[in-house]
Design a protein around this nucleic acid. Structure first.
Length: 597
RNA sequence: GGUCCGGUAGCUCAGCUGGAUAGAGCAGCUGCCUUCUAAGCAGCAGGCCAUUGGUUCGAAUCCAAUCCGGAUCACCA
């Protein structure tokens, strides 16, 4: 239990004892960190008690304050200011917290919940390379997986690859006509980019053909259907579904190129999966379920033979689940996959990392599954995140107005190199170490940039403004971490092995020291909130604040020249804990921290 | 039009389960490296928390209305 929670519990107990018979609801008890301008560490708000207890703030304040001093064991003194009870926590409490956690190598890790949680993320289309917006999805999914793992869940990271459909055929058709047999090997172009180029090519040609047909007097909506290249793509899709040997062969080849490209990108990003699902394997699964739902009378059939679900009672619309010709739609596939995933791993929770443009779709999916009586309906959680936009609006791969993920990674690493060299900080590194450092800094900055904002908010990225390496960034945290490592190196201390069995608290803890211990104490509850809210930005904010506090501490206190041995040990324990917590928090999100920079 | 999401410093964002004088970073301005890493620290300046009303001892936070921006409401995925 965190200290703030202990204070709440004690306050509840105190009120029960002081005012027997008056049931104070837990919601009436609020505990905040004390504002810096007042003395104290935590503050209990007294206003909510006044009416129910028919008393005044200073009366109840001193009653509760006395109770805390006498019974809590951790409060040394208190002050009542207006309606606030400011509690000062004993230095001994902080010291013993520190010693205890210092010797706990798993601080920040929760015991197992016994729950199986799947996080589906990334889920790319195999017709184009990843762009900046996809990065947010990938980082979010990976970070949330780490957070759920740290809070004791068994996590399965899943990737549902969208490897079939008309959009895939578009790249294939264009490649057939315009590539003259070009391959990643023959051109030296990364496979996903090569295929993406032909997706763009398809759209160029398509647009041109539509224009020509319109110029010949055809209606635009008809022209869009009649353009030869579009018809060809549709034919190809039909051929694929029929298992046409040549089409399937080409499909396998081109998807293979894309996977090779994706693998490189995933590896550079430090992102991985425990389970791959391919839509080509799963797209037929939902049909059976839908037909069963039809039998049960949960769904209904229209005259033309198409199958629908009526969600009007839920305030939504009617939704098609099977076409008149019996083929599946997107929703049907997702119904099948949801059940498949659920059964594959006996899931307690199934998280979908999907952009907020699909909120409606996910809502419908969940409702349909519920209507069908599928237990997986209740396990679904849509982690809906806002899209990354350019100042000019949304990225459109069809129009080629995207910030490419691979380019972005290169740019970030190049920037890390440039700034390290400019600062003259390359000494004492081998060439290989430098390469690794630039990657750690560049990728860290990129990940942090995309994770530090509340997932549900959309964000605007201006490619003209580079991602900063100062201030609220991973670099800032990495730098603080490197400083700690440097201190330890100079002191000859191994942070994983150092123990302080003789530590005694000899004098008062200073404000800068206390700020750090207080933050360290809050780490677990921050991690829990991040898990509850599926929100890595909480960890980003927390870790940044910890780094800030460390830098201030570093400025006013010396470790090497500490006033005495007790202070030195105290500070060593503090900074080692800070380094560990930073490493744990960032590591959870896939951001590495260097020992030196 | 229905539904949903957002509007906080010049810019990017915290704070939103109601609590003290609304916080960071960037950009701007002052200081601070013969002392454990200045990718840092300390400070200055910058706000009608979109608007209006309501609830309350207390509202950026909750409710209602309005304005602005976005998403979505496909036999696309």
């Amino acid at each position: 239990m965190s200290l703030a929670e202990q204070i709440k519990a004690s306050a509840k107990q105190a009120l029960d004892e002081l005012y027997p018979g008056t049931e104070m609801p837990a919601s009436a008890i609020t505990v905040n960190q004390t504002k810096p301008e007042f003395t104290g560490d935590y503050t209990l708000v007294l206003f909510p008690f006044l009416k129910l207890l028919k008393t005044k703030p200073d009366v109840i304040g001193s009653q509760l304050g006395d109770y805390f001093v006498q019974h809590s064991g951790f409060v040394v003194s208190y002050q009542v200011v207006a309606g606030f009870l400011n509690l000062a926590v004993k230095d001994e409490y902080w010291a013993s917290f520190l010693v205890q956690r210092y010797n706990d190598n798993h601080y920040g890790e929760q015991g197992t919940t016994g729950k199986n949680v799947m996080v589906e993320y990334s889920s790319p289309n195999t017709n184009k390379p990843l762009h900046f917006g996809h990065l947010r999805n990938n980082f979010l999914g990976f970070a949330v997986s780490g957070i759920l793992k740290a809070t004791g869940n068994h996590v399965i990271k899943a990737n549902l690859v969208n490897d079939r459909g008309i959009h895939i055929c578009k790249s294939m058709v264009a490649w057939k006509h315009y590539a003259h047999g070009a391959t990643p090997r023959s051109t030296g172009i990364k496979g996903d980019h090569l295929v993406g180029d032909y997706y763009v090519k398809f759209n160029d040609v398509y647009k041109q053909q539509v224009e020509e047909l319109v110029a010949e007097g055809m209606d635009e909506t008809i022209a869009e259907k009649e353009a030869p290249i579009m018809k060809e793509a549709q034919n190809m899709l039909r051929a694929w579904e029929a298992g046409d040997k040549d089409v399937v062969e080409l499909w396998k080849t081109m998807n293979g190129w894309v996977y090779e490209g994706f693998d490189i990108t995933y590896q550079r990003l430090g992102i991985d999966f425990d389970k791959m699902y391919y839509e080509s394997n799963t797209y037929l699964l939902g049909k059976e379920i839908v037909l069963k739902g039809l039998e049960k009378g949960v769904l209904y059939k229209k005259e033309d033979g198409s199958v629908w679900v009526n969600l009007e009672d839920e305030g939504l619309d009617q939704k098609l689940l099977l076409r008149a010709d019996g083929t599946s739609v997107y929703m049907t596939q997702d119904i099948g996959t949801a059940i498949l995933k659920y059964n594959d791993f006996k899931l307690d929770k199934s998280v979908y990392v999907i952009a907020d443009e699909q909120n409606y779709h996910m809502q419908v999916l969940q409702l349909v599954l519920k209507k069908l009586g599928e237990p997986c309906a209740n396990a679904i959680h849509h982690l809906s995140y806002g899209m990354v936009e350019l100042p000019t609006g949304r990225m459109k791969s069809r129009e080629g107005t995207v910030v490419d993920a691979d380019d972005m990674i290169d740019e970030m690493i190049a920037m890390a190199r440039q700034q390290t060299e400019e600062a003259g900080k390359t000494e004492g590194f081998t060439e290989k170490e430098l390469e690794e450092l630039y990657e750690t800094i560049g990728l860290g900055a990129l990940k942090f940039y995309l994770l530090r904002v509340d997932p549900k908010k959309k964000m605007i990225f201006d490619p003209k403004e580079s991602i900063d390496l100062h201030g609220f960034t991973a670099t800032f945290i990495q730098y603080a971490h490197a400083r700690i490592c440097s201190i330890l190196r100079k002191e000859g201390i191994d942070r994983n092995a150092a123990v302080f069995p003789d530590f005694k608290l000899a004098e008062a803890i200073t404000p800068a020291e206390k700020a750090l211990v207080l933050s360290l104490e809050q780490y677990v509850s921050v991690m829990m909130s991040a898990a509850e809210e599926y929100n890595p930005s909480l960890l980003c904010n927390y870790t940044f604040q910890l780094a800030q506090q460390f830098n201030s501490f570093y400025d006013v206190h010396s470790i090497a020249k500490a006033e005495n041995e007790e202070k030195k040990q105290l500070r060593l324990m503090i900074i080692i804990m800070v380094a560990r917590v930073m490493g744990h928090a960032m590591g959870t999100m896939g951001i590495r921290l260097p020992e030196k920079m």
